[in-house]
Amino acid sequence: MLECIRSKKQTKITFVLPASHPAGEVSVVGDFNDWRPGAHPLVERLDGSRAVMVTLPVDQRHEFRYLADGGHWLDEEEADGHDGRNSLLHT
């Protein structure tokens, strides 16, 4: 799930995954963090879901995916689109 807060100059995107799915550590990786695993790890919330917030400039297109333990890649179903390989996000 994606939660978005937009202002004139930036968009705050919160990437959210349900509790324990997938099991283990998960990070969001994309062109906004040079595809570096662990740069934006999801952290457990009070409701058990896991999330991380990333602030991005407005009016840009970004590619991203989730990377879970064991090298498992996951797509975001609620993304603005998919290019056949990555999830797409328009800020």
Rank of each mutant, 00 (worst) to 15 (best):
G30A: 05
P37C: 12
D69V: 07
A51D: 03
P57M: 04
L56Q: 10
N33L: 04
P22L: 07
G81Y: 10
S20N: 15
H62K: 13
G24M: 08
R45T: 03
A51S: 14
R6F: 01
G48F: 05
R85C: 02
E63Y: 00
M53N: 00
S20E: 14
K12S: 11
M53E: 15
L46W: 02
F32H: 05
S27Q: 11
A19H: 03
G71Y: 06
T14S: 07
L89W: 00
R36W: 03
Q10F: 11
H72S: 13
P57Q: 04
V43M: 13
D83W: 02
R36S: 07
E77N: 11
I5W: 04
G48I: 12
G24S: 04
F15D: 02
P22R: 08
P37I: 13
E25T: 10
N33E: 01
T55I: 13
K9R: 10
M53K: 03
P41A: 11
S7V: 06
A51Q: 12
V54G: 06
D80M: 04
H40E: 14
K12L: 12
V29L: 11
V16W: 00
R65M: 14
D34E: 14
L17D: 03
A68R: 07
G30V: 00
Q10W: 05
L89K: 02
G84D: 04
R50S: 05
D80T: 03
R50P: 01
A23W: 01
P18D: 13
A68T: 02
V43D: 13
Q60W: 04
V26W: 00
D47L: 04
M53L: 00
S7H: 11
G38I: 01
P37E: 15
E3Q: 14
R65P: 06
D83Y: 00
A39N: 10
V43Y: 02
L42F: 00
D80P: 00
M53Y: 06
L17R: 13
G84S: 09
V26A: 01
S20W: 10
M53H: 00
G71H: 13
H62W: 13
R61P: 01
S7E: 14
V54T: 06
V54W: 08
R36Y: 03
E63K: 15
G71A: 14
V16R: 11
T11V: 10
S7P: 08
A19E: 14
L56E: 05
K9E: 13
N33G: 04
G81Q: 09
K8T: 15
H40A: 11
E77L: 14
S7Q: 14
E63S: 14
D80Q: 09
W35V: 07
P57R: 04
H82K: 09
H82W: 10
K12W: 12
Q60N: 12
R85D: 08
P22M: 09
V58T: 15
L2P: 04
Y66K: 04
Q10K: 14
P22V: 02
D75T: 12
R65T: 15
G38S: 09
H72G: 09
R85W: 07
L17Y: 03
G70A: 12
A23P: 08
R61Y: 06
I5V: 07
D75G: 15
D59E: 14
L56N: 07
G48E: 08
A79P: 06
E44M: 09
E76R: 10
V58H: 02
R85I: 10
V43F: 01
D47T: 01
G38N: 03
S87C: 05
P37T: 11
N33K: 06
N33F: 02
E77D: 15
